[in-house]
Design a binder for these strands. Structure first.
Lengths: 208, 208
DNA sequence: TGCCAATGTTAACACCGTTAACTTTAAGCA
DNA sequence: TGCTTAAAGTTAACGGTGTTAACATTGGCA
């Protein structure tokens, strides 16, 4: 079952890989089913045996992206609550910076409407949950405030997602040093932005 | 200079408005020069007398968006530093929620590459500066920590931008109450996420 | 072995952005 | 006032897209 021109058996996977390559180089807007089919050496309508839509191909790429992001977040060492939180933040931003076009596709909104691809939403939740679990652990350890979990998770996610998007797209003037920036930002969230000039004022603690 | 079919004198503005209407209803992906020309009652190539590109039309829409965002941020009352900061955060998210498709276009990244439209970058800076100035005032008033201004601005912008994007696109599970969410998130950034159980522990202060 | 479902094929439709070549009109100057 | 010129419109055409219909081939199973 191999290469008789018909039924070469690997079309789905090959189209996926080809589309991923184009995505990485030129962004999702440059993904064309006809071009992909030609490069694989197959007619364009053949792709419709494996993907109902161009959009479903993109959704599959995004699903893979969320799975990769989840793995990257899971691989962060959770030694102390603080190290786990900062590590997750850095890992998140690092992922976005290493795969900017894929990240943009995952959170495009315009390209992949939210309710349309259940497996996509599920994959997004999978990554989301890693972040949420880490925060919950930080709360149980007494390191984080006992604020509502949904609130704290939304805050953390908004921060890392916003930073990812802004750095990827080249906003953020004076974005000199990026790694320090990400670490400084997460620290700022943890310790707060308000100056407590009352008495104690022991800024920059490093270990809980 | 009016309506002889030729030279109806208002093509530029009319195309802008028509494109904006389509953008609001269906997103930037649905903006088609041919369709716009037809609805205005003009041939498609006529648009190229007023826009060098489809992309330049989109850039013009985004520029208008940044100007509107800037105005909305400027209209926030700056009574106390805290009120100014929270007010700006709420206004920012409110703008994104009131114009989701426009906001997505402004920060698309994939649609409008960063260095290609100088006036666009300038308009973005205009909105950015309002946020930065507010933070600088908060620092001068002694309300905010004297951390590097670029760091604090990047943090604040990341937070409000991330929250905007996530709520617009329907991520954030359990996103029950949005206004409280935005306010809670900005407060959390101001006061920090760490529980200070050592001694002082005066959480939830409301005035500096 | 013969049939059927899976998986390919070509042809075609209706769009799209964009350019070339041409035409009409408004405006300014002799 | 009339002529010229540049601005602003026109049609025709090129190459590209996603997608569907109708048809062809093939591998696997009864």
């Amino acid at each position: 079952m191999a290469r008789t021109a018909y039924h070469h058996g690997d079309l789905h996977q090959q189209a996926h890989q080809q589309a991923l390559a184009v995505l990485r180089l030129e962004g999702d807007g440059a993904i064309s089913l006809r071009a992909i089919a030609k490069q694989i050496g197959v007619s364009a309508p053949a792709l419709y045996r494996h993907y109902t839509d161009r959009e479903s191909l993109l959704a599959e790429l995004a699903i893979g992206g969320f799975a990769a992001l989840r793995q990257q977040l899971l691989s962060v060492e959770q030694h102390t609550p603080r190290a786990a939180l900062i590590g997750i933040g850095l890992a998140y931003v690092a992922f976005a910076q290493s795969e900017p076009n894929l990240y943009r596709l995952m959170f495009g909104g315009r390209v992949l409407p939210k309710g349309a691809h259940p497996r996509l939403d599920q994959a997004g939740l999978g990554a989301f949950n890693v972040l949420q679990d880490t925060i919950a652990r930080g709360q149980r350890a007494g390191y984080l405030k006992p604020a509502p979990l949904a609130l704290m998770t939304a805050t953390a996610w908004s921060l890392v997602h916003g930073l990812s998007q802004l750095t990827i797209d080249g906003h953020l003037p004076n974005a000199d040093a990026e790694p320090q920036l990400a670490e400084g930002i997460t620290s700022l969230l943890l310790e707060g932005a308000i100056a407590h000039t009352d008495a104690h004022t022991d800024n920059n603690e490093d270990t809980p």
